[in-house]
């Protein structure tokens, strides 16, 4: 679950010296399969307020040129906060949760 395929873990002679990590290296670790439900964007209801983006704990709302463009399903854990926070248009939310097909 979630594990990325590492061909072989390095031995102590090959590993970089010490408890040192490259920045942002967690991006390759996929947490998307933690989800039981996924957020689905409904662009026609979106007012581009970016509340979903600012409240997502997992940096999983994709934004380009300051516009919401969808979700990063590799990392989204399906918490549903974006749905709760989405004001949508005229009371119609621009995000809904759908069950993951298992």
């Amino acid at each position: 679950m979630g594990e990325i395929k590492v061909a072989r873990k390095k031995g102590w002679k090959e590993l970089p010296e010490g408890d040192y990590l490259e920045p942002g290296s967690a991006a390759v670790f996929e947490t998307g399969d933690w989800r039981s439900e996924r957020p689905v964007w409904i662009p026609e209801n979106c007012i581009q307020c970016l509340f979903c983006w600012v409240y997502c704990p997992d940096s999983s709302v994709k934004v380009k040129d300051s516009l919401m463009t969808g979700f990063d399903y590799k990392h989204c854990k399906g918490c549903g906060i974006c749905v709760t926070e989405c004001p949508g248009k005229k009371g119609n939310k621009a995000i809904k949760m759908e069950a993951e097909k298992k």
């Binding site: 873990k9 590993l15 010490g18 408890d19 040192y20 990590l21 490259e22 920045p23 290296s25």
Partner: peptide, 12 residues
Amino acid sequence: PFTLGAIDLQDY
């Protein structure tokens, strides 16, 4: 930038 002091579990 880099990370120093990460948690190392039984695998590292």
